[in-house]
Simulated scan of single mutants.
Amino acid sequence: MHTVWKGAISFGLVHVPVKMYTATEDKDIHFRSLHKDCGMPISYAKTCKHCDKEIGTEEIVKGYEYEKDKFVISTEEELESIKVAAEKTIKILDFVDLKDIDPLYFQKAYYLTPDMAGAGAYSLLLEAIKQTGKIGIAKISIRSKSSLAAIRVVDNCICMETMYYPDEIRSLSQVPNLPSQTVVNEKELGMAMALVEQLSEKFEPHKYTDDYRTALLELFDQKVAGKSMDVVTAPTAQGKSNVIDLLSALQASLDATNTKPDTSPPKRKRKSTAKSKDNVS
């Protein structure tokens, strides 16, 4: 695994040096856009619709849209000056019960391992969290972005899950068509609850798989193994040769010269000053 962050966990006066590793990975199947005729991947240039031209990186600035089509431009220097300090500390602010945290708040999970000579302090924090059943609520800065985080134990590892701040969670009042109150038939409710009980099992995550991704990969494997016409190799991108372009331009110039009618006025003959042989004495 690749280390994505190094720092320490602090709670009270205890300082636990740790390394951070991403606990999850994106296994979504991502498609590339290809040119249908030759199989070359299509690149998307940054263009300005107003100026109708491609824009270079040096011509791009950052702007915040405060109203529709109205922006406030900020320079890199301004943004740099107000960046969150890249503190190398996961500061635990409080300890809470896991049941008090709505899963809606959780973002991305990371594994934390002891760094340097921090194994003793690491084990101390791990056992304290495990035996009290509490979850640490902390703040951390990663890549100049401040995040809320939950510190908990997974088996024998301290795990950190970044969390949304409360103002990042949309209010239910914005969700359309929610019933103002629930009205159900008691007999139907009893049957529904009985069905829930019959389907209740211990959570075993390994029995759940992404059927769509599995079917896609099987389809791709079959196409590759069967050397389907849908399997293509992108051609090597070849830039224009200046030599060829120059030769083409020269040839075109020569062709134009050879076929162009001579419209210049006829040249006048210069009067000869030499004597004719017939007049030589």
Rank of each mutant, 00 (worst) to 15 (best):
L247A: 06
M116R: 15
P166I: 02
L246P: 14
S10M: 08
T209M: 09
S171A: 13
S272A: 09
D97R: 13
R170F: 07
V232C: 01
D52C: 14
K88Y: 04
E25W: 09
A192I: 07
K275G: 10
I29Q: 07
L93E: 11
K62I: 01
A234M: 01
K267A: 10
A45N: 13
L13C: 02
E67M: 03
K19R: 12
R143A: 13
D210T: 07
G120F: 01
V280S: 06
L246R: 05
D262L: 04
Y64Q: 03
D69A: 02
E78V: 00
L126D: 00
L112C: 05
R143I: 10
I140S: 02
N258M: 13
F31N: 04
D97C: 12
G133S: 05
A128C: 08
I101T: 00
R213T: 07
D278A: 13
D262T: 07
K227E: 03
I55N: 00
V14T: 09
A256P: 02
A149L: 02
A128K: 01
G118N: 05
V153S: 06
H2V: 15
A192R: 06
R268L: 11
G56M: 04
I129M: 04
Q174E: 14
P166A: 03
S144I: 01
Y21L: 12
M40Y: 02
Y110F: 03
H206L: 12
K130F: 03
Y64S: 02
N258H: 07
L216M: 00
D102Y: 11
V61I: 03
I151M: 11
G118S: 08
R270G: 06
P265D: 03
V153W: 04
A150W: 01
P235D: 10
G39E: 05
S264D: 08
G56R: 05
G133P: 09
D37Y: 15
S228E: 07
V96K: 03
I169M: 01
I101H: 05
K27Q: 09
